[in-house]
Design a binder for these strands. Sequence first.
RNA 1: GCAGAAGUGGUGGAAUCGGUAGACACGUUGGACUUAAAAUCCAAUGAGCAGUAAUGUUCGUGCGGGUUCAAGUCCCGCCUUCUGUACCA
Length: 1001
Amino acid sequence: MKYHFNEIEKKWQKYWADNQTFKAENNSDKPKYYVLDMFPYPSGAGLHVGHPLGYIASDIYARYKRHKGFNVLHPQGYDSFGLPAEQYAIQTGQHPALTTEENIKTYRRQLDQIGFSFDWSREVRTSNPEYYKWTQWIFIELFNSWYNINLDKAEHIDTLIEKFTSEGNTNVNAACDDDIDIFSAEDWNGLSSEQQQAILLKYRLTYLAETEVNWCPALGTVLANDEIVNGVSERGGHPVVRKKMTQWSMRISAYAERLLQGLNDIDWTDALKESQRNWIGKSVGATVSFNVIASEAKQSPTSEKHVIDVFTTRPDTIFGVSFMTLAPEHELVEKITTPEQKEAVEAYIEATAKRSERDRMADVKTISGVFTGAYAEHPFSKEPIPIWIGDYVLAGYGTGAVMAVPCGDERDYAFAKHFNIPIPNIFKDVDISEQAFSSKDNVVIDNSDFLNGLSYKEATKKAIEALESIGQGKGKTNYRLRDAVFSRQRYWGEPFPVYYVNGMPQMIDVKHLPLTLPEVEKYLPTETGEPPLGRADVWAWDTKTNTVVDNALIDHKTVFPLELNTMPGWAGSSWYFFRYMEEKANRNRTFATEDALNYWGNVDLYIGGSEHATGHLLYARFWTKFLKDRRFVKVEEPFKKLINQGMILGTSAFISVLGIQILINGKENKNFLEIEVPTKYLIPISEIVVEAHNSNSNNVINDFIDEKLNEIKSKIPDVNIVVASQINKLHVDVSFVNASDELDIEAFKNWREDFKEAFFITEKDGTFKVKREVEKMSKSKYNVVNPDQICEQYGADSLRLYEMFLGPLEQYKPWNTAGISGVHSFLKKLWKLYFDDQDLRVNNAEPNKDSLKTLHKTIKKVEEDIENFSFNTSVSTFMIAVNEFTAQKCTSKAVLEPLLVLISPYAPHIAEELWQALGHQESISTAPFPEFDEQYLVESSKEYPISFNGKTRFTMELPLDMSIEEIEKAVLANAKTQEQLQGRAPKKVIVVQGKIVNIVG
RNA sequence: GCAGAAGUGGUGGAAUCGGUAGACACGUUGGACUUAAAAUCCAAUGAGCAGUAAUGUUCGUGCGGGUUCAAGUCCCGCCUUCUGUACCA
């Protein structure tokens, strides 16, 4: 019987679906294990071979855990809100829901054919109203919460209102906005409802705030930093302006310390934890307030006093301050700039506005800045300090202002040198004539009044105390992590369950949710710059009927306007892993029942790309911590163990094309003197010929040009002919290239009309070689490989094995379809162990010693590999095992049956088929994993490598229990040893029992 | 600039604890089977030198040093590539 993989794979995929083989139980005696893949976005292009890499790895692990007796939850679903569907809708008018539905169908078909053990009964889609109802509910709960720093957790807003009512806010220690005034209980109780709401908004975990955004009026939308190039939009090149917009924000900063500390308790890679730590960016230091000295020109009795607040990690260097730098966008710049400097400052601000934030951050070589003409007063020495602006200071970071200490900071030093600003030295016995001294170790502060002679630590403490005593600063821990903007001016996202009464946001009660997306006629922003929901005619909230009603009914008494923004992509993906815990039947009552949440706890293994390091993975941790504070879930961290998979790159194929252009009397003329002569030739050249040409060892190309030239000259004598030639590289579709890098010329000609008639310079044997290069897989590079074709040609089991065989999971590696024949023939060899041409050849023969040894070393290795996520090496191990069993002519069921269980996580279809052939009625999926037994691997002797000065010369088989002395004796007695030594006496003989013998001398 | 990861044959990679570098594959070459092709099977395959051969021998894990009986692996200094990025004050 032959290995008909297509039939086998279809058969078992159907079996698994029909029998719900991989359905997870919420009640089970087995221990639980939750394996999750990062949420896929169903894009229109479908899957390419790079996408399933992580899914295959997690599937192997999930299947392995089932063999190990676990109740495994391995769900899948779609992060189905998103920009591509919306863009497509804008272009075609097709509703994003329809596009999304189509894309999901393709995804599902493609995923099914790879044979994943997903529990599809638990599928979620973020764009389904029954799902986003609960996303809206979480938003409302965030709105109804504040962060109590004393208890270090979020609480319901009612407890805050209670405090305000009884004692005001003097004793409230909350994560809140900076601009909060102190008020008493009486003050609070005397406020109007609107005033109270406005204050509460400053405390809520989600709140409305003015945020500066990159606004592109032409596109009517907000752009990300990297969508802006040289101050204009990447798409279309439209101008972009900085604009303040009122948007929803999430007070993630309240959780900064817990997000940081939580990293210590989770099993993630150090690299990933490090990037989250850097993102959170904790720094300990102090805030210092510098009073601006009112300039004479601006001095007037009414002019307000300006204060510049800075944060510094080095308050010990306060006496080293010789200037201050403000971000050009800093709000004080305009107020303090003197008339003389006005022009220069304005020009600088304008120039800065054109630079992207990223540009400003990466460029450290260019030093630029302008003096504002204003001075600040040093808090202690009362000396005037010049205030500069410079684009190395960013408005969004810290306070947007820096106290510059050039002797202790490289950047400040360079700035001071560049602009000839004094560099006072405040470090004892340190030379700062060439560079700044930025170390915190071995510092003795000098020239610093009361800080003289102190170390970094002592001086820092004392400086903070002194600042506090004069009321111009205090110790502070700063985090880089900023609150996350939660509004998007898009259509295809979750609507906010919010309506506005007198400009104040009001939440819709959860019992009236979901608030579903309204229909709009176009998916673009409105002409007045409102988000697409501004186009909806029926988008007002009737508080009497609790329904969405026509906008015409808005009277601001009982019918109010609804929020026009939608939520960002990360809203739905910040809690989906909890939704999977609940079975579909129970999902309408709550986002997940307590029983389900208690049973599954958190995700045991999470696999996905490292691009989510600081986005999704931080937000999901934030929401989990919030949900725990409010007792909706029990776990502090959502993902216990996390592995980043690398990317699969494409192996692009290029052909070299010789372009010849012939100018006759300076003109490109086909009908010169009425003789038709082609003036352009495009000649593809085989890569080997090009290489020979480049190394000057062959002139096929020059000969060809000469030949063409002579051809023309014979037709048109006595004219001035100029020939220009150039060799260019051209991407060709990888599907036209075989394993030996040879191009299918006919297929290529059919693909590219312009080469239909082209002459191809091939090898002597007529083959045409392409050049290969590794690049990102992308449509435009024609190097995309579709898993559909692979499944059809080689089968899903081959695809699964090959993706793993390519290399370590976390590494970036190129795809080359040619290599798949290796794993495919392995599967054929495996099949042949069980079937000959006609029948099953497996019998009940006693397994021989060698076969048992092969089996048990395979069990050991595969188990270790899976536990270490080293899937590539276990594929090699299978190959070795099958090669050995074949050589041993093994037919014993006692060996071949457990082998199937080992292979089943990797190649489940063939394993099921052979398992059934061995007489089993049940699926292999829960068959117990074979037990490793040491006794089969016990060796009595060892092939010792005998090396001389570290170089192995020959091997000797010696008993393992031989003593070191005896080994040394035996080795020295060996004739080959004497030959190596050539009469010399060895200086030393090193014997490592069971490992190696090294003779020195 | 900073941070992280990586660099091993023609290619993907293995060597998990400092102990026989190149497992397992792809590709290539030669052979068997076949009218032929495909498929399959067998053999060789890091580079150089010597030898008819068996074999011997030198070099060899990005580069330069070091530790060690022994280094792809450990230490110091560099180079290159990839990824991320926030001048964090």
